[in-house]
């Protein structure tokens, strides 16, 4: 029993221990390769335009090659059947037209959350801002600077208190109409998370026009945009399993007579929020809330925002126009400035 099977004579006597050792080794090696080829989670990437913005998704999943298309379909359906104020047959379009409607639980929940944030922000954020946002029409074909009289007339139609939700029956005042533009991207991230859970994705990064969903127990490094533009980062933060939204004055705007008019409208004045902030990034465990809170905080400013953020257990990074940066306590140690022209202030 001393002759080696592999080297000396294959048909001679066999060393059983060698055979076992070799076989085990081969099986383990084959197993590792086979696992990597057939069973390990595979990354898939997709970019497309929907909801008037860019959607990008990177998903690691073992067994669902259709997930990218499912997400694409879900976003198109959400826009057309639920969120868009420009589609007459969407739930929001129908509610704006009829002022009273039986809606889905989804829309009822969205409106309740928005009403709460509107109240907590003392009306700085208001989901009934539609009459004013329609006047400005940022990014649309009729984008323009409205007259003072027009804004005054439209302002009188803003009132979140007119929203009445009883179960799935919703009424709004005769003059009010809903614009979910400030929460639609975040809410879409919430819905995509449910899809990823259903298909048991291992991890994913979804960006709906810069509002992010980080899915899974995996730490991702997030770049926070430099407000100077060109989609470069001014700092980074490592995060996992959360939602992130940024509101800034650099995304949608136009200039007239040397003045810049950005798209984040203060529902109390009808004009773009005129503060000392360039952007606010909010991190929390709800897409809708991260989106609503980033808008509210941008309008309210740093000091007024702190209690609001605390109530919703959210963290935030504030970038000021003079390039100073302030963070809430939960992210102050995690956020790293990578562009030296910005300065952290405690």
């Amino acid at each position: 029993m001393q002759v080696n099977i592999l080297s000396d004579n294959l048909f001679s006597k066999v060393n059983i221990k060698s055979v076992i050792a070799f076989s085990l080794c081969a099986v383990i090696a084959f197993g590792v390769v086979a696992y990597d080829c057939f069973f390990a989670a595979k990354e898939s990437n997709k970019s497309f335009v929907a909801m008037g913005t860019v959607i990008t998704s990177s998903i690691w999943t073992k067994n669902n090659p259709e997930i990218q298309q499912q997400i694409n379909d879900e976003i198109n359906a959400l826009e057309k059947s639920l969120l868009s104020k420009n589609v007459d047959t969407s739930e929001v379009g129908r509610l704006n037209k009829e002022k009273s409607a039986s809606v889905s639980e989804d829309l009822a929940d969205i409106l309740l959350d928005c009403k709460e944030v509107s109240k907590d922000s003392n009306g700085a954020f208001d989901v009934t801002i539609c009459p004013v946002s329609t006047l400005w029409d940022f990014g649309g074909e009729n984008q323009r600077l409205p007259s003072e009289n027009e804004i005054e007339a439209a302002l009188s139609k803003i009132n979140y208190e007119s929203i009445n939700v009883k179960g799935t029956n919703v009424t709004i005042g005769n003059e009010q109409s809903i614009d979910l533009g400030a929460v639609g991207k975040g809410y879409t991230c919430d819905k995509i998370k449910a899809l990823l859970e259903e298909c048991r994705a291992q991890k994913a990064i979804i960006s709906v026009g810069g509002s992010l969903l980080l899915y899974g127990n995996h730490k991702f490094t997030i770049g926070v945009a430099n407000p100077s533009g060109n989609k470069l980062a001014m700092g980074t933060i490592d995060l996992k399993d959360c939602f992130i939204s940024t509101s800034g004055d650099y995304e949608k705007y136009f200039e007239q007579d040397g003045k810049k008019y950005h798209h984040i409208l203060d529902a109390r004045t009808g004009y773009p929020a005129d503060g000392y902030l360039s952007s606010v990034t909010v991190i929390c465990d709800s897409g809708l809330l991260s989106d609503a809170l980033s808008t509210a905080c941008f309008i309210m400013g740093y000091n007024e925002s702190l209690d609001l953020l605390k109530k919703y257990d959210a963290e935030a990074i504030f970038i000021f126009k003079d390039k100073t940066v302030k963070c809430t306590d939960g992210v102050a140690d995690k956020f790293k400035i990578t562009n030296n022209t910005f300065k952290m202030e405690k």
Binding site: S207, T221, I222, V224, G248
Partner: peptide
Amino acid sequence: SDFDVLTY
């Protein structure tokens, strides 16, 4: 890269 994705 310094980061995986950008929020803007």
